[in-house]
């Protein structure tokens, strides 16, 4: 008979269990993609608002895969926006200036809204560019 320490022990933590939630996320993404195509409506899912286990997240990550685009955004901390293997589906991770994750989303859009510059911002940029040019001309 083997001694007690020879008996193999396996500890299953809740992080190693699939809850089935990730499946539902995929289904919802598919629905959102259809709406984007048909009506141009964008959608998003707050991943932190879902009770996903560690295993769920790994599984979801694997299912979504990686696309061609990865955008780094520095605005009060780094954000990473990654295109998944399905164009139009983005994985968005916002961090603050102390590198804490403040939001983790799936966005379904041609381009995530935060990337598109705002009209006002472009206008202001344009103005400051013109000013810059004027100053350069005047300066010569």
């Amino acid at each position: 008979m083997p001694s007690i320490d020879q008996i193999p022990i396996s500890i299953v933590s809740p992080d190693e269990m699939l809850t089935g939630q990730a499946d539902a996320v995929l289904t919802e993404i598919a629905g959102m993609l259809k709406r984007l195509l048909d009506d141009g409506i964008e959608g998003s899912i707050d991943l932190r608002g879902l009770a996903l286990s560690g295993a769920d997240r790994v599984w979801l990550e694997k299912q979504l895969g990686r696309g061609e685009v990865e955008i780094m955004l520095e605005a009060g901390g780094w954000s990473v926006l990654t295109e998944t293997a399905y164009p139009g589906v983005w994985k968005v991770m916002h961090r603050d200036d102390r590198d804490r994750v403040v939001a983790e989303l799936i966005e379904v859009a041609f381009v995530p809204a935060i990337i598109r510059p705002d009209n006002g911002d472009v206008k202001k940029g344009h103005e400051s560019l013109l000013l810059n040019l004027k100053a350069k001309t005047a300066g010569v």
Partner: peptide
Amino acid sequence: MSRRTFIKYCASLASLMALPPS
């Protein structure tokens, strides 16, 4: 402070208050 920074902050508030991400 940029507009995007503010949007990010709002995204975190929305997440906290369980408002839709949009």
